[in-house]
């Protein structure tokens, strides 16, 4: 019996990767990377989750059980990094749109310039 959250992670990663492989629009490519990133965040969070436990922020905890703090720290870091990556990618997308007048990869790709 596989846990539902891990199944969700696998499905989301597949969705993200198929977006990356099959979609030519660069906004959709950015979205694909976002989906993969979010699914990995979900994976990290669900690794540290303990049922019925509290957030690991109390000094005098009301219950003995706490969720693991490290995966949450990792997730937070990944969210921040992800923000930077997304911002940079979207700004590059704006520049590409200004330069080529289209967002579809097929129309502006730089083909290998072999002689």
């Amino acid at each position: 019996m596989i846990d539902i959250q891990f199944l969700t992670v696998v499905i989301l990663i597949s969705v993200g990767i198929s977006t990356l492989v099959f979609k030519k629009n660069i906004i959709k490519i950015v979205m694909g990377i976002e989906i993969i990133s979010s699914s990995i965040n979900l994976f990290l969070i669900s690794l540290g989750y303990r049922e019925g436990s509290v957030a690991p922020i109390f000094t005098n905890a009301p219950s003995v059980k706490m969720v693991l703090p490290t995966p949450q720290a990792l997730t937070l870091t990944n969210i921040v990094i992800d923000l930077a990556i997304t911002a940079l990618m979207l700004s590059l997308a704006v520049l590409i749109y200004n330069y080529y007048g289209t967002l579809s990869m097929k129309k502006w790709r730089l083909v290998e310039r072999c002689s």
């Binding site: 990356l20 490519i29 993969i36 990618m89 590409i96 330069y99 790709r109 730089l110």
Partner: peptide, 17 residues
């Protein structure tokens, strides 16, 4: 240059994946 932006975009996709 359009090519430089494009190379950076490709590099970023590859790096982040």
């Amino acid at each position: 240059k359009g090519e430089a932006i494009e190379a950076a975009f490709k590099y970023l996709v590859i790096s982040s994946i």
